[in-house]
Simulated scan of single mutants.
Amino acid sequence: MDANLKELMISNSDSIVDSWMDEVGRIKSGNYTASISDELYENTNREFVNVIFTSIQNQGSSKVVEEFSEKMINLGWPLSYITDGLQVFRRVTIEFLLKQADQVDSSHFSNVLTSVDEWIEPLIRQLVNEYSGSWENILSLQRVALQELSAPLIPVMEGITVMPLIGTIDTDRAKLIMENLLEGAIKHNSEVVLIDITGVPVVDTMVAHHIIQAAEAVRLIGSTCILVGIRPEIAQTIINIGIDLSKFPTRSSLKKGFTRALEITGRTVVDLPSKNQGIDEIMNALKGE
């Protein structure tokens, strides 16, 4: 950047910042920041413009740019806020520099445009790249976290485990379900695995096929798979699309499925007498009744 123009900008930074703040305030409703409070918006704008001027004073330093981009993502601000702000800053700066000249000829005009672009263009690319990279990293971490929680196998009793499924099942998630199901069934030495589809909103041909594959895989390792949570509309859909679930035990609720799992593992549910009922039995026995 032209050294004279750079010095002129830095020495008149307050005037440029004021003009930029006014212009950015006018486009607030157009870059999805209208719902942000005026105080937060103004504070963030001042931080943003400080980042811009820091970049011209410390060329080659990307730390402040990286930190600002990460902050914008954490606050949930759109990328358009950054791009719009930089475009406005470009326009305000060019207008200011042209007004300071005693005479504006084509040579001076070209020098101003070139100098500002040499400064702003790399900053735009750097901020956008940092924003995009940080966003992709956050999405990647969230995707891993969701995958870890999307198909848990929960041991509820010796020999009995439950896999609750929630949300849409696609091919990638079905593969994860299969892996977790087999690894968990072997790890917990499960005799019965309950697959609960209560939280699955739609069961189409693909979803049913994946569930049948999972149940068949469990059967091949010596465990019994019970499909629970079959709502009336799900049952009707399964019948309409011609899916055969006759090979696998099914129950309408997790409670009924768990009762069946207890039977398969040689257990039963016994109702214990109430406290008062137990006392009455003891008294009757003492009386010889």
Rank of each mutant, 00 (worst) to 15 (best):
K6F: 07
G30R: 06
I16C: 09
E42W: 06
M21G: 00
N12C: 05
A34S: 02
L40P: 10
D22F: 07
S19Q: 11
D14H: 11
E7N: 05
W20A: 01
N43V: 02
E23K: 05
M21P: 02
D38G: 03
S37H: 07
D14P: 11
I16R: 08
L40N: 13
K28R: 04
N31D: 01
R46I: 14
I10Q: 13
E42H: 13
S35P: 08
R26D: 07
N31C: 09
V49Y: 11
K6P: 04
E7H: 08
E7S: 10
S29Y: 09
S37M: 06
M9R: 01
E42N: 09
N45G: 13
A34Q: 02
T44H: 11
I16V: 14
E42V: 05
K6V: 03
R46Y: 15
S19P: 14
L5V: 06
L5P: 07
R46N: 12
V17W: 13
N43E: 15
A34M: 05
T44K: 09
F48Y: 08
T44A: 08
I16G: 08
T44G: 02
A34C: 08
L40H: 12
I36V: 14
D22E: 13
I36G: 09
E7R: 13
N43S: 15
R46D: 15
N31Q: 03
T33Y: 00
N43R: 14
S19Y: 14
G30F: 04
I16E: 10
G30V: 04
S35T: 10
S29P: 10
I52W: 09
N45T: 03
F48T: 04
E39L: 15
M21I: 02
T44M: 10
N50I: 08
V49H: 08
M21E: 10
A34D: 05
M21D: 07
E7K: 05
G25C: 03
N43G: 13
V17M: 11
D14L: 12
Y32G: 00
D38T: 00
D22V: 09
S19F: 12
D38A: 14
I10Y: 10
S29N: 08
G30T: 01
R46Q: 11
K28Y: 02
S15C: 10
D38W: 03
S13M: 14
S11L: 12
L8K: 11
S19M: 13
N45E: 03
V24A: 00
A34I: 00
E7I: 02
L40C: 07
D14F: 06
K28F: 00
T44E: 12
A34H: 02
V49R: 04
K28G: 03
L8W: 05
L5I: 06
Y32F: 04
M9N: 01
Y41R: 02
A34W: 01
S11D: 13
V49M: 14
D14N: 15
N31A: 03
N45S: 12
